[in-house]
């Protein structure tokens, strides 16, 4: 089976600090992959590089054979819009738009008319038990509700890959579990692959497979010599 997304030998430095120093990542269609590691080890940077949000200094990221760093901003944006979905710890919702409009946003940016876009958004909100909050602004939602809206937005374009960076980082274990159940459930149903960055093993346990980032590297396991 061919990988959906491959990242090889990624290096990334911010000034003198190395965030990535040779990290690899392979993501297969439909799988849920956890990325674990200590704080500051480079998990987020790896995810950003894999999603084309950051360009690595070295190494390449290929999505279905397309090298992300060779795509221009317009194509990368289109990729973000159609093929990728994002759930971050916070801050990814537009505070001025209602929950419904936030969920419909990627569709609208992709040229879908308002009516059908919002219908699809409403259906997703329903699935995430948020129908009664469709008209609320992110500021009026609890952290867990905001994350569920974010999940709905990540799913609305039926993406191939969902990138989630500490999606439950700010939530208690019950709401976190709820968000994870909804996220992984929906992803499995639609066949989307998920890159799940977390340092919480219980969250990582939702994945099918896991990798560990240490000091910017994703070392293969050494034997007990």
């Amino acid at each position: 089976m061919n990988a959906l997304l491959t990242a090889e030998g990624l290096h990334k430095a911010y000034g003198p600090t190395f965030a990535l120093a040779g990290a690899d990542l392979q993501l297969y269609a439909g799988e849920i992959l956890s990325v674990m590691g200590p704080s500051g080890s480079g998990k987020s940077t790896l995810l950003h590089c894999a999603a084309g949000l950051t360009t690595p200094d070295q190494g390449r990221v290929a999505y279905l054979g397309r090298v992300l760093s060779e795509l221009d901003d317009v194509r990368r944006s289109a990729l973000r819009r159609r093929e990728f979905g994002f759930v971050f710890q916070f801050g990814q919702l537009v505070p001025e738009l209602t929950a419904l409009e936030n969920v419909a946003l990627p569709l609208r940016l992709d040229g879908v008319r308002r009516k059908p876009a919002e219908q699809r958004a409403a259906a997703l909100l329903e699935r995430l038990h948020l129908s009664d909050k469709a008209k609320a602004r992110p500021g009026e939602l609890s952290g867990g509700q905001q994350q569920r809206v974010a999940v709905a937005r990540a799913l609305v374009t039926e993406p191939k890959v969902i990138f989630a960076d500490e999606p439950t980082g700010a939530l208690d274990s019950v709401s976190g579990e709820q968000v994870m159940d909804l996220l992984t459930g929906a992803a499995r149903r639609s066949g989307a692959a998920v890159v799940l960055v977390t340092h919480d093993a219980r969250i990582a346990a939702y994945a099918d497979r896991g990798i560990v980032v240490r000091d910017g590297r994703t070392p293969a396991r050494a034997g007990i010599r």
């Binding site: 093993a201 346990a205 050494a222 034997g223 007990i224 010599r225």
Partner: peptide
């Protein structure tokens, strides 16, 4: 390598958790 012992155990634990 104690680290390898730990890594092996991590994998084992994670598998169980999954």
């Amino acid at each position: 390598s104690a680290a390898a012992v730990l890594d092996a155990q991590r994998d084992e634990h994670l598998t169980a958790m999954r």
